[in-house]
Design a protein around this nucleic acid. Structure first.
Lengths: 346, 346
DNA sequence: TTGTAGGCGTTATCAG
DNA sequence: CTGATAACGCCTACAA
């Protein structure tokens, strides 16, 4: 019977039952071949019997390095970030790095707290999925002196490394295409006023102005859901009955809007063209298929992780700031150009 | 200039610049009022200037307790688990507990690895979102001697505490209702062969047998997506053209199936009734609204976290195994009973 | 091949 | 109110 109950086994416990010192056990655990065969067998047996669980804490304390990297995402319920994480882990896992995931509900204050928590565990690096941070966040990261990659966007004032894309340009391109196909009264729908919603709105207004049109938008602070997309569509129709197109900050809203149109027997794209962003699977399952901005999230994750690991291993990397670009999928919800031409005759 | 470059500040650094010992700084950080006012001011200033970041590692090492609990979820991309996590954190956060999130792609082996990783950080407790585990997982948890809550299901052989619901009974109830409304050729569609998919299938077959019918199912190992739901529907129609109802293991498949029906001009619910499980928002945005099993995920999370914290603080709790129940939302995709009666006359 | 000594940064404990 | 000491569990460095 042990003096202390229910304490989980340490190297010393194994050593005691094996008749060696914990140092030998430590060696065995790291490379069994460094201990004599007889010793090896005895240790192996006791390790198995006790169910020894490795303890990373002392090592982190000694070396101030944890072989763990922190990932911060604004929201767990937003599908968009799981692809980013997959991309990251496809690189970190083979490299033997642990990932610690934290989310913060789009609040910079909460991001700050979460980063503090991760730093208190001595993560070796951070991957962030937004580029707006509190002053304290920036100071903490500077003090911790660990590498950081900001992803998704292309921040004006980057903390360190960047892998992202130009959401404003993407929005501008999509709206430009809608206008090229003959739409004139395109309305912008946005939710949860995060940075990307703003950038896309700016792109939208640019495209409208490029074509001599004045845009109109509807925003809400609620977070994006499909039902919210439906409600925003209703509101837009009530306020701007003449609208002939909808550009949404994301596919969630766009899908909700499209479904509501169908429920109200408004023909998409004949009466209203609809486009979103992020290329969610649901948009592809709809009829008509949703036009969307394709954001290469997995690629962003992979590149961000690669850059971070390169930096951690002291490698030189040519570019610390990468723009991964985007592509547009026009789907079936913008209408064909032929249809537009006849529509334009009206 | 410091001897060592870029080392993040420790209590000793603050102490040196303040003329006290690190012990006093430690006290200040935990409760400023325990140090003299003059000292307090000096320490505060240096702490701010240095940007001290707390280091939890030594404390974890000393006390073998981290004030952190691990959450294991099978998948990040499955919407279902974000509500569970929200529920958990609504309890753990006010209580000052950190949550560490890990996911394992529905693989028990990977779950084992992730649990090992969490235990190596000395988490104080675990919340699991499935109830199938490897033998090694069970042994590790026993060795670590920390409290565990298994959630979502009601496992036969629980590790410790349980908060879940009876998926089999829920599926049986839903299918029974479909049959009561006159459907006879209801097919079961399942994906990714996890435990809950199996349980729901068993419930489905029970309901069919209760009504003297032999069921039929289509399964795939792919993970659930909306497009997959559409493909499964096509496959089901090809193999069982006479089908008049579809019960899906989750709303993702059900929504995909419903959209595909609409694309093919198959009237839902007139020709085919459809039901799913989990009450995702998208199902509620559709027309007709999707019939679904309402799983109280946030409640499960809250209760699980409460039980875990109760146990960690040594409180006695009456019940360690809770069945939170379920409810059914018949939506509009099952057809009204009147319609069914006339349909039944055919 | 195995053992000994010391240190990582914090806090509990006991002293002053 | 503040300080000295020891301890947590492992690993590096050195020794035998």
């Amino acid at each position: 019977m042990n003096a202390i109950r229910k304490r989980r086994p340490t190297l010393q416990d194994i050593a005691d039952q094996t008749g060696v010192t914990k140092m030998t056990v430590s060696r065995y655990l790291r490379d069994p071949l460094t201990v004599a065969e007889a010793t090896r067998a005895r240790i192996a047996q006791v390790v198995e019997q006790l169910g020894y669980i490795p303890n990373r804490v002392p090592d982190i304390l000694s070396n101030a390095t944890s072989k763990a990297i922190g990932i911060l995402i604004p929201s767990l319920s937003n599908q968009v970030f799981s692809a980013l994480i997959q991309g990251i882990e496809s690189v970190t896992e083979p490299a033997g790095y642990q990932t610690l995931l934290a989310h913060y509900g789009y609040s910079p204050q909460r991001e700050e707290q979460q980063i503090a928590a991760l730093l208190s565990y001595h993560v070796d690096g951070l991957i962030l999925a937004e580029s707006q941070h509190t002053a304290r966040t920036r100071k903490m990261i500077a003090t911790a002196a660990i590498p950081v990659v900001e992803t998704m966007d292309l921040p004006q004032d980057p903390i360190d490394m960047v892998v992202g894309m130009d959401h404003q340009a993407a929005a501008r391109a999509m709206v430009t295409e809608m206008l090229r196909r003959g739409r004139r009264q395109v309305i912008y729908l946005g939710a949860r006023l995060d940075r990307r919603t703003q950038l896309r709105m700016e792109g939208y207004y640019q495209a409208m102005q490029d074509n001599g049109l004045s845009g109109r938008h509807l925003l809400t602070e609620q977070s994006s859901t499909f039902t919210l997309g439906g409600e925003l569509l209703e509101a837009a129709l009530a306020r701007y009955p003449e609208l002939d197109g909808i550009f949404c900050t994301n596919d969630d809203l766009a899908v909700g809007a499209l479904l509501r149109c169908q429920a109200r027997s408004i023909a998409v794209p004949q009466q209203i063209a609809i486009a979103g962003s992020n290329a969610l699977d649901i948009g592809q399952a709809l009829t008509p298929k949703l036009a969307t901005i394709v954001t290469p999230r997995e690629t962003i994750g992979r590149m961000a992780a690669s850059m971070l690991l390169a930096r951690l291993s002291g490698q030189a990397v040519a570019e610390w700031h990468k723009d991964v670009g985007f592509s547009l999928d026009f789907g079936q919800s913008l209408g064909s150009e032929v249809v537009e031409q006849s529509a334009a005759l009206i």
